[in-house]
Amino acid sequence: MLVAVVVGSGIQATELTRDVGVQLLANSLATVFGLGVLIALLGPVSGAHFNPAVTLAAWFTGRDRDGLTLRDVAAYVPAQIAGAIGGAILADAMFARPLVKLSTHDRSAGHLWLGEVVATAGLILLIFGLGRIGRAAIAPAAVASYIGAAYWFTSSTSFANPAVTIGRAFTDTFAGIAPASVVPFIAAQLLGTALGLSAVAVVYGRPVPAGDEVVVPHGEPELASS
């Protein structure tokens, strides 16, 4: 559903106006609202793990405690990628576009990769920082707001999600990314993940408590550590 929102709103925007700024505004607003709703709706079910970068970060920080296991990661990541591809196909179907047409939107440039590093690092810092200060309940609004802002302040328009990046390669529309651009984008996102976790350690001094509740709590609430 997340990728259906991103791709579908991009298609709708390009059909309604030729102004690229208005197209980006429409696309970003739809993504903000859609992402916020999806986190609020699915956070209590799965922790709203839509993003392999977040899932890997949760496993890494909680590997020595009662956090996500490698088995969890092995289940989550394929589901995230399959969902992203399915979302792109669904959006194309809703707008009578070819169901699968690889994107020709080249995004291969150093400044775009830098934008992805910054976007992903900020996202990781936000999500795990909220967990550290006991504010995970505001994640739907906070994460959606950050992604909306990052659409505009990063050169890459903030994919910040390896699964979403892969899914968007399957649609030759406004939101697409050429397959040749996918691997460098994902590499930048993984680098951003590492930098984001480092920033959490610097800001908060100790590793974050991780697990499958890093996005939205879905169980008995726990007090944040001091």
Rank of each mutant, 00 (worst) to 15 (best):
L90S: 00
G43H: 11
V73W: 00
P44I: 14
D106A: 11
G34D: 10
S108G: 11
L35W: 15
F60C: 15
P44Q: 14
A93G: 13
P44C: 15
Q189G: 04
L25I: 01
T69L: 00
L125N: 07
A194C: 12
A188E: 01
H49K: 15
E116R: 02
A13G: 05
L70M: 15
I133C: 09
V208K: 06
T154S: 04
I186F: 00
A96H: 14
F33I: 11
A142R: 00
F33W: 08
L125W: 10
G47W: 05
G219C: 05
A26E: 06
F159N: 00
V32R: 06
E222V: 15
A4N: 04
L223G: 15
K101H: 08
G87L: 08
N51I: 11
V6E: 02
A88R: 00
F60P: 06
S103T: 02
T14F: 02
L90V: 05
P52T: 07
I127P: 12
N51W: 08
V20A: 13
A119K: 04
Q12N: 03
F128P: 01
P44S: 14
F50G: 06
T31H: 12
H218Q: 06
D212C: 06
A160Q: 05
V20M: 11
L24G: 10
G87Q: 07
G211F: 01
A75D: 07
W152A: 13
A119D: 04
L197M: 14
W113I: 07
P52C: 13
I186E: 00
V203M: 11
F159E: 00
R135K: 14
A48P: 12
A93P: 12
R71K: 15
P179Q: 01
A180Q: 12
L56K: 03
G134Y: 13
F153Y: 15
R168T: 07
P184R: 03
L125G: 02
T69D: 02
S108M: 13
G148W: 08
N27R: 04
A48R: 11
A30R: 01
G87F: 07
R97P: 04
P98L: 00
D106Q: 10
V77A: 05
A199G: 05
I81V: 15
F159L: 09
G67Y: 06
L56I: 14
M94K: 03
D106M: 09
A141L: 15
S156W: 15
L29P: 10
T14W: 03
S46V: 10
E220D: 14
A136G: 14
D72C: 04
D72G: 10
P162R: 10
A178L: 04
